[in-house]
Design a protein around this nucleic acid. Structure first.
Lengths: 335, 335
DNA sequence: CTGAAAGCGCTTACAG
DNA sequence: CTGAAAGCGCTTACAG
């Protein structure tokens, strides 16, 4: 038989309401009573039944983390899990639990979210950027449900979100290259439609321009972000009649191919050509030489998301819509 | 005002108990009544309050996944998250939710688990192998709490667990090498005390022996599993007076270094030397040429863990203690 | 400062 | 086959 609040009340010689008040730190309880109750709790080794508390309070102290959880997600997108850890850490530090929810099996867009809200099985929902869509957005906004999107949603709305300033990352990349004296640079980006890639490119090109080193169109490349394309594009760049002084890759996968091409061409980094890429993961840690990268602290983004969620729950009238975190440069051996 | 079971009862002209029975598929309900109730549910768009159900049923339909969730875990141990996804998938398919729990902040060993059990906030607990210890084991066994450990616990106990047959993986490695005609082979392992490495090595050496190709002690190496050590050890192996025909590395990190050494020595894979390693992640996908690996399907391990958990919950007297999953060979260009 | 009582929204013996 | 009633273990106005 598990110990209940009634057992504690009996043991302490008070009513259950009094025990409850002690448990919830009401200020109206006399110190003497509080002590007696605490002693009883200690003696009986009482711990409140979380289910009953949740039911009586009409709050779960639980946050759902909505994302894709398919096979190989961990390898294809470790960032997502690092964000998850950050969010977990912040939430658990404030006595919230965190439940996972996969969106990939939804046959109707947004159904898992609707269900989540109507069953009242969480107080709030953190949504990974890859899992947000207009249908979910509408459900959440209509019900005014506490939420945070990780990554800018990609469409205008009243949704709340946290993101890293990717344009600033591009700016930092340009600034670093110019400071090191690399002024003629080729940029290998992802797909034209990729928002993240676009922001990095925009920040990079804009800052180069401000410094007076406009990057010509023929030195701006788009790709499907495969290592193979990074390799081929870089070969092409290196065989230009007038080779650029440096190459910037929009992501790690491109970087693997690019550096292979540079190595095979017999060029030395950074003497013959400088190289910079974005993100410290997943490959730049093991590529040799270690490239200079503009990194984003995704764990911290998760922490910020958790923190914003908690503040929203504590103060529902809070009007903050977004947090933006700042990228940092990690210097390697290629610039 | 959210719709409750009472609203549905009123709408359908029946009692709340009847609605509840319809909701829970009791066979004693007449088809006509069931239809009326379903219509009312449909009309009011009623969804049961999960908190109330959980409280009344004294079960949460929630499983806790216990592990380490610190910064960078996702990069250092993507396997763990892939397992997590597998477990989630299986659990959610059976209408269980899954909550994360980090163990790294426990000041007293096992305190988070004790708390979990006393607050009754889950029906069962899945524990990643890295997070199990004697204190947690004792708590769980004493309370006879539904649990699954991912990976053999490393000490004898009545704990339930799932794991891959790592010795079999070693066996498959040996078999493959011998079949391809590579009979003189060096083995680079992890630390002597590492159980997984030991099992792989044991399986490998044992099978080589059975085939009649005993691996001499001077061709068995131990290491701290860094890429650097893989590199240096391989260089040493390649400069032996009588070079082996193949090298087997116990893990991916060693493999990165080993293959670099082979390449730098001007040897061609697999013409001059054959190479095989374990695990398809995190690096063998991008190493060139792609090595032959013995892979373990960790996602499937998670699925098995989830499945075993569900069967235990449905049938508490189930005596199964362990599942063992089977590794597979993925042929690359190095054997 | 404390307690009796209602209530949170379901489930489940039990009676009919 | 259906329903009245007790119960799950807390919280929280409200009265004193």
């Amino acid at each position: 038989m598990p110990i209940t609040i009634n057992d504690v009340a009996k043991e302490a010689g008070v009513s259950t309401s009094t025990v409850s008040k002690v448990l919830n730190n009401w200020t109206t309880i006399s110190p003497a009573t509080a002590t007696r109750v605490h002693q009883a709790i200690e003696k009986l080794n009482y711990i409140p039944n979380a289910r009953a508390v949740s039911f009586a309070r009409k709050s779960t102290k639980n946050i759902v983390f909505l994302t894709y959880l398919e096979k190989d997600s961990a390898y294809l997108n470790p960032h997502m899990f690092d964000i998850m850890c950050g969010a977990y850490n912040e939430l658990s530090g404030h006595d919230y639990t965190m439940t996972l929810q996969d969106i990939s099996k939804d046959t109707v867009k947004g159904e898992s979210v609707s269900r989540l809200l109507s069953t009242k099985s969480c107080d709030g929902i953190i949504i990974h950027g890859s899992a947000i869509n207009a249908s979910i957005a509408e459900t959440i906004i209509k019900q005014n449900f506490p939420h945070i999107i990780i990554g800018h949603p990609g469409f205008e709305s009243r949704l709340c979100w946290v993101d890293t300033n990717h344009a600033l990352a591009g700016h930092l990349a340009a600034q670093h290259m110019v400071e090191r004296g690399y002024t003629s640079i080729a940029f290998i980006g992802g797909q034209k439609t990729d928002e993240l890639s676009f922001q990095r490119q925009k920040g990079f090109l804009g800052t180069m321009y401000q410094y007076g080193y406009q990057v010509p169109d023929e030195r701006i490349f788009y790709s499907n972000s495969t290592s193979e394309e990074g390799y081929l594009t870089t070969l092409k760049i290196l065989h230009e009649s007038k080779r650029p002084r440096g190459i910037v890759c929009e992501n790690n996968t491109l970087a693997v191919g690019a550096m292979k091409a540079i190595e095979q061409s017999g060029l030395t980094l950074p003497k013959d050509i400088a190289f910079l890429t974005f993100d410290a993961y997943p490959y730049t840690q093991i590529i040799d030489p270690k490239p200079t990268v503009i990194d984003i602290n995704v764990y911290d983004m998760g922490v910020q998301a958790g923190n914003m969620m908690i503040r929203k729950l504590e103060n529902p009238s809070l009007l903050v819509q977004s947090y933006t975190t700042i990228p940092v440069i990690l210097e390697g051996q290629t610039t």
